[in-house]
């Protein structure tokens, strides 16, 4: 079961990399022309294509690229002239903390809200949590970003409205540059998670073993925390896994709003410049991340739900 999933995972990545390579190299627009702009001439274009290694046939380039990727060498950016692996590493140092902080914040918001609204189902607290969830689902994250900038950066001047000073500028400035983007990214996630947590808790509360526990004299709250919550983790994790690819997509938009030099901006810029090597490497990493996270979620299932363990 696990092995099959693992092979499936690798095949998925192979399919994605082939697809990516084909798309990127068949896109209209010539990277050599991009670099030479409006003064390009046939002879300089030809020289540029040769310098970029674009004069070799497609299959050769694919094999060379894939071989490199397998050994950890993602090639050299044709615009920057630096190794793609380095570029990805530098940019991931912005995107991954951003995504991680957003997940953390969304869990910190959603678990308590979900618990409260399950515990006080149908009461006012439930309604308030429900309203939060509905709003969180409806607000575009980049708009939340704009509003946060309007209030906290433009009006109050508390936080930077965008840009990233780099981790070398110190933890303080770097983190404060990530505060608003994290909030913008986390709110919609928190909304989804709140709803799922509440539903999952109510589900498990209705199951026999919880009722048995209640019958043994546990209060509703105790039953909720001790029995329902651990069992509700399965659907919560599923959603976290599924939402991860949305989170990555959201990061692209949010990085754009806040002008953060993350993977999303890297891809966007590389795409405009037809820097195929960079786009291929970055998107492959994105996809690998999503696939691996989902795989880990599958593993976590086994851990949280003994019934599934027996089944496998």
């Amino acid at each position: 079961m696990l092995l099959r999933r693992l092979i499936g995972l690798l095949l998925t990545l192979l399919a994605v990399s082939l697809l990516l390579f084909l798309v990127m190299n068949l896109l209209p627009g010539d990277p050599a022309a991009v670099m030479l702009g409006t003064s390009a001439r046939p002879d300089t274009l030809a020289a540029m294509r040769e310098a970029m290694g674009l004069d070799r046939p497609l299959p050769v380039r694919f094999v060379v690229w894939l071989g490199g990727v397998l050994t950890g060498d993602f090639g050299t950016s044709i615009t920057y002239g630096t190794p793609v692996a380095e570029l990805i590493r530098d940019r991931a140092a912005v995107t991954l903390p951003l995504a991680g902080l957003a997940i953390l914040l969304s869990i910190l918001i959603a678990l308590p809200l979900g618990l409260v609204s399950a515990a006080r189902r149908g009461r006012r607290a439930d309604a308030v949590a429900g309203l939060f969830a509905q709003l969180g689902l409806a607000l575009p994250n980049f708009w939340i970003g704009l509003l946060l900038v309007l209030v906290f950066a433009s009006e109050l001047h508390w936080l930077p409205s965008g840009g990233f000073p780099g981790w070398s500028a110190g933890l303080g400035p770097a983190l404060s540059a990530l505060v608003l983007p994290t909030v913008a990214l986390a709110l919609p996630q928190a909304a989804v998670l709140t709803r799922v947590t509440r539903a999952a808790l109510l589900d498990t509360l209705a199951e026999d073993f919880v009722r048995t526990a209640r019958a043994k004299g546990l209060t509703r709250r105790e039953a909720l925390l001790r029995h329902a919550l651990p069992n509700a983790m399965v659907p919560i994790l599923t959603i976290l896994g599924l939402q991860f690819s949305f989170l990555v997509a959201g990061a692209v938009l949010v990085e754009n709003v806040f002008d953060l030099p993350g993977l999303g901006r890297l891809v966007y810029q590389a795409l405009l410049q037809r820097d195929a090597v960079v786009v291929q490497g970055t998107v492959l990493c994105f996809t690998a991340l999503v696939v691996v996270v989902n795989f880990l979620v599958d593993l976590a299932y086994l851990r949280f739900d003994p019934r599934l363990r027996a089944a496998s």
């Binding site: 509003l147 946060l148 309007l150 209030v151 906290f152 109050l156 508390w158 936080l159 930077p160 000073p165 500028a169 110190g170 303080g172 400035p173 983190l175 404060s176 505060v179």
Partner: peptide, 23 residues
């Protein structure tokens, strides 16, 4: 309506403002 400020975000933001100002 513009964002209504609540206490928690205000505190959080203030904490980060100190960090931002120091640089």
């Amino acid at each position: 309506q513009p964002i209504r400020r609540r206490r928690l975000p205000t505190l959080l933001a203030a904490a980060f403002a100190v960090l931002a100002l120091s640089t």
